[in-house]
Design a protein around this nucleic acid. Sequence first.
DNA 1: AGTGAGCACTCAACCGGTAAAGTCCCAATC
DNA 2: GATTGGGACTTTACCGGTTGAGTGCTCACT
Lengths: 342, 342
Amino acid sequence: MTATPTPRVTIKDVAARAGVSKGAVSLAFNHKPGLAETTRDRIFRAARELGWAPSLTARTLAGSRVDVVGLAVCRPARALGLEPWYMEFVSGVESVLAEHSSSLLLRLVRNMDEEVGVQEAWWRARQIGGSILVDFRGDDPRAAMTQRLGMPAVAVGHPSLTGGLTSVWTDDATAVTEAVRYLAALGHRRIARVGGAADLGHTAIRTAAFDEAAGALAGAWQVATDFSGDAGARATRSLLTAAPADRPTAIVYDNDIMAVAGLSVAAEMGLRVPQDVSLLAWDDSQLCRLTHPTLSAMSHDVHGFGAEVARTLFSVISGGEGGSHPVPTPVLTPRGSTAPPR
Amino acid sequence: MTATPTPRVTIKDVAARAGVSKGAVSLAFNHKPGLAETTRDRIFRAARELGWAPSLTARTLAGSRVDVVGLAVCRPARALGLEPWYMEFVSGVESVLAEHSSSLLLRLVRNMDEEVGVQEAWWRARQIGGSILVDFRGDDPRAAMTQRLGMPAVAVGHPSLTGGLTSVWTDDATAVTEAVRYLAALGHRRIARVGGAADLGHTAIRTAAFDEAAGALAGAWQVATDFSGDAGARATRSLLTAAPADRPTAIVYDNDIMAVAGLSVAAEMGLRVPQDVSLLAWDDSQLCRLTHPTLSAMSHDVHGFGAEVARTLFSVISGGEGGSHPVPTPVLTPRGSTAPPR
DNA sequence: AGTGAGCACTCAACCGGTAAAGTCCCAATC
DNA sequence: GATTGGGACTTTACCGGTTGAGTGCTCACT
């Protein structure tokens, strides 16, 4: 199994075999007019026999059109692996990319500087035709970068965060409000929220919405985490160690994995869910149906969200409108982890 | 935000600005000898001022060296999102790719035919310099494909599955044996295994190893699933509905998520873990520490595994040895979900 | 002074395609 | 019979780099 000396087939070989010029082959493979049906067939047959497909590299160089889309993800790897959101999002993105026979260039980065560096390098090196930007934070440098480079991009996040970029977003504020209202309607008066990373824009939005919605209650707590299960467990533990009269009777989590962790902390502390404390997860991946009790959750279609992002990116790449694309607000899906307080 | 008319900077602009030929710029950027220090500096300064980086596309076309690595994953998206293994694996792969300033081209496919198609298209279109092949099954077409195309590739899986391809693998058979021995040593005599997808090669290896190791016990069960939590839950439920004397006292799972699902099924059925039934997870992602009780697991370094795969691929791409690369066997990490049977 | 060796570059061909302009041939039109 | 008009290709000029074969020039050596 040494290095392969396979002489790669090129357009020239196909042209020779079909007895035409390479221009003709190019016409055939781009479905352009100006070729007789019989010639076209001959060309395709030759290509098939030689196992040739046009080199995307050469095609890109000539046509200056790149059909690869970039995605740099900036979260600690250990949190990522457990965050069902990402894979579902990616699978949604890919379902649309596949239709355009594009591919996803993925990179896990450690911080914003690295992400900006990666995006810029990708674009400069003409590796990507556009990029998907996720996890916006306050004072995010990526809108400026995108503008400066003239790179097509779609931002995942509320327009107020994404500095004028074309964006696709879910209405987190409304969803948080709905979550709080639901718990309040069940009779809860002391509600806590275990939020995500504080520097993330959508966390800030949810935090503000929670403040607003829970302001009138007898008790409201918010804790910031890094989205990891560990952090969710710690936060839950500290919320539930207070005296029964001083602790929350319901906790809202910013993702599923923290809710799962919270559930086991409750068990560990001898508290019954939902009798002693109600838990509400966020995203509603399959995980929520695998626990005992099952987890009530704010539920949305992450796969569809990814698909919408990809569609929007293609439209931006081809010079389309851009603008702001809200997708449906997460809806409450009650299951076994929420009930009226005792 | 219309289409960007930004005239892209090319090597010619840099050459002009530095007052040299484009050949000189190329020499400088490839750190080749034959340039005065001062000229080199001038070139780099000019490039920096113009914000230029060599086009990977053009470079690839000229040099016929591609620094993108392909990975097509063939699992249902809903199972994938919950499978921490993949993201951790990818993050390990990327840690090595980053050192070589390569990137990962990712694609989720629905079946083997599609994967073969994607890999072949990638290679033919010169989009990738090599590929990582995962989830081998019996009679896998990918070894033949790789050979036929002359594409550098590294297979993740036991050499017996990967048809002569360079492979990186964990010794699942030994690990399964160790798991069974451990449970037997605790006193368990009726042990079940909730396995992964039956058509996957490594599932078959584990199944055979379990048969061998558990053959002498009073009771041994094996169930195949699709790795999803749902399937894990169903399998557990059916194992545990038998009369107490006829049901397993310990269950080994093929991944973490099914073990989590099993845990909640036990709870739902009123069985205590580990007193009534011991559970043993596989992979040992963070998830195992987030449950109550925590899950004992067969533990291994998936990140490091991914890194080793990437290193091996680079070596194959540059004409290196290939061969078979075992990585350390998973080790048993006892936690709260295993104990002697009552 | 003549020669050869090195160094520091430049030049031009090439990688594998695309796309605009050009060529050739035949049928229809005046 | 000359003109026009297409259809069906071919030619040629890029795209943005790399690379090997030149080209001056300076300097050491005989």
